[in-house]
Structure formats: C-alpha cells, structure tokens
C-alpha cells in the first residue's frame, strides 16, 4: 500500500542497545519530512535523524505523528525526540528541552502574483497559517487575534485554499514554500524573507541531559565529517546550517 503512514525501523551498523531511540516526525512537511509513494518517511529531517543515529551507533525507530499532538506525545513518553523542523521557542521551552539548532528557518508570505500583499501589510488581507506553528504565532502578532487569520490543521489544506483563492496569502516556512512554488505557477514569495531568529532544534523531554549531550555531540560530528553538508546539498543545493 502506498499512502498509509507506517513506522520505519532503521538499523544502525552496530548491534542494538537495550532500547531503541524513538524519534517522531510529522510526515507532512516536504521536503523536510513526508511520506513517499511506498509509505515510507523520507526527507531532510529523516536523513538527519538517520545520520545522527549512525553517529551515535544507536538503533532508531522513526514514527509519524500529527503536528497538533507532537509535543504532548513527547512529554507523554510516546517517543524520545522530535526531529521535525521544530522551532525553538520560549513557549515550547516551558514544556520540553531542545538540542543545539541544526538549521535556521525564515518565514515568508506566499501570495498570488500581483496581489499587492507584502510581509508588512498582511493584516489588511485574509491570511492562512498552519495551527500550532511559529508561522501562526507570527501571523497572529501581525494581525492581532481579530484579523482575518485562518488556521488549518495541515499545510496541504492551506495551500489548497490559497490555490482556490479562499485566502490572499499564506505564511509559511521558507524552504517548504520554495518547494511548493516549484509546482505552482502564478504564485510567489511576497516581500522579503522574514528573519525571526528562528532556530530549528531537536525536541526532547526536560531533564534528559545524557540524551541531549549525545545528540549534540552527534550533530557536531556529522557537521564536521561533511555528512550534514552532503544531505543539505542533496535537498537544497546549498549547506543550510
């Protein structure tokens, strides 16, 4: 079967440790994490997760989890880490802990060509964003809680509404937006990239120093040995670290 999201077990070269490390990703955020036609989780985040596990010589299991429930799932112990392009924010730090960042994100406003929307005047338009994301928080700050901000459960649904013309613009992360624009003529990034000092990290439960140190060491390791650069170039043509 093709589309049903299934777990993907990855075996590292060395024999298994006592417990496999369980890593969650969303599976609906191309090109960082998505489900391919064979039902496997693939993407930049997944490749980074695999590289980290190989570096740590740990056995890993990667599972898909919907965005809305991804942090509650971590705190409840469904898995041990989230590698899903998650922004490190103050609000999230109250519930979970993060490793060092593994890349930086920018926000962009995507709109129909010639619509007049820019990153400065969004509050005059109807704007979409995915619920529970940093893009939604940014949009809320720009528009106030009473602006015409529409929140969607998935990015796919919001892009569909932009295409249909239900909303004038959509606030998205830079890389997925670029990916979407490749297949959709007539739309473009409105205005400049928005630098919101958005660092992307791996979320783990609080008070798990050992795991945090191990992940940070592995991250430095794959950056130093060129693995990170290789994966990044494969997806984006450049090193995005």
């Amino acid at each position: 079967m093709k589309k049903t999201v299934m777990t993907l077990a990855l075996l590292a070269a060395t024999p298994a440790m006592a417990e496999p490390l369980r890593i969650a990703t969303e599976g609906a955020y191309p090109p960082f994490n998505e489900v391919n036609a064979a039902g496997e989780l693939v993407g930049f985040d997944v490749d980074i997760a695999n590289a980290l596990c190989a570096k740590m010589e740990a056995e890993c299991v990667i599972v898909a989890q919907d965005w809305d429930g991804i942090i509650p799932g971590l705190t409840a112990g469904k898995y041990d880490a989230i590698i899903a392009s998650m922004s490190i924010t103050e609000e999230r730090l109250q519930t979970v802990d993060f490793t060092d960042p593994y890349y930086s994100n920018f926000l962009v406003v995507v709109a129909k060509d010639g619509s007049g929307v820019t990153s400065e005047n969004v509050k005059e338009y109807s704007v979409g964003a995915q619920r529970s994301t940093i893009a939604a928080v940014w949009a809320e700050e720009q528009m106030g809680t009473r602006g015409d901000l529409r929140l969607y459960d998935t990015t796919t649904a919001s892009f569909a509404d932009l295409e249909a013309g239900r909303i004038d613009a959509f606030v998205a992360d830079y890389f997925p937006a670029v990916e979407w624009l490749k297949d959709n003529a007539g739309f473009s990034i409105a205005g400049d990239r928005i630098d919101i000092d958005d660092k992307i990290g791996i979320a783990i439960r609080q008070n798990e120093g050992e795991l945090k140190d191990a992940l940070n060491a592995a991250l430095n390791g794959i950056i130093a040995d060129g693995t990170y650069g290789e994966i990044s170039t494969q997806y984006f043509g450049v090193d995005i670290y």
Binding site: G69, P72, G73, T75, A76, G77, K78
Partner: peptide, 23 residues
C-alpha cells in the same frame, strides 16, 4: 486524547516511576 496521557504520566511520576506508558 491529550488528557489521558498527561494523567497517566502524572500518576506515574507521583508513584515515583518514570512512565513511558503510551495511550
């Protein structure tokens, strides 16, 4: 959906063991 896991985790902590119980 969100409450049971929190509840289970809280009760677990309260009883003094680290729960990885998953609903």
């Amino acid at each position: 959906f969100f409450g049971t896991e929190k509840a289970v985790a809280t009760v677990g902590q309260w009883l003094g063991f680290e729960t990885t119980f998953e609903v």
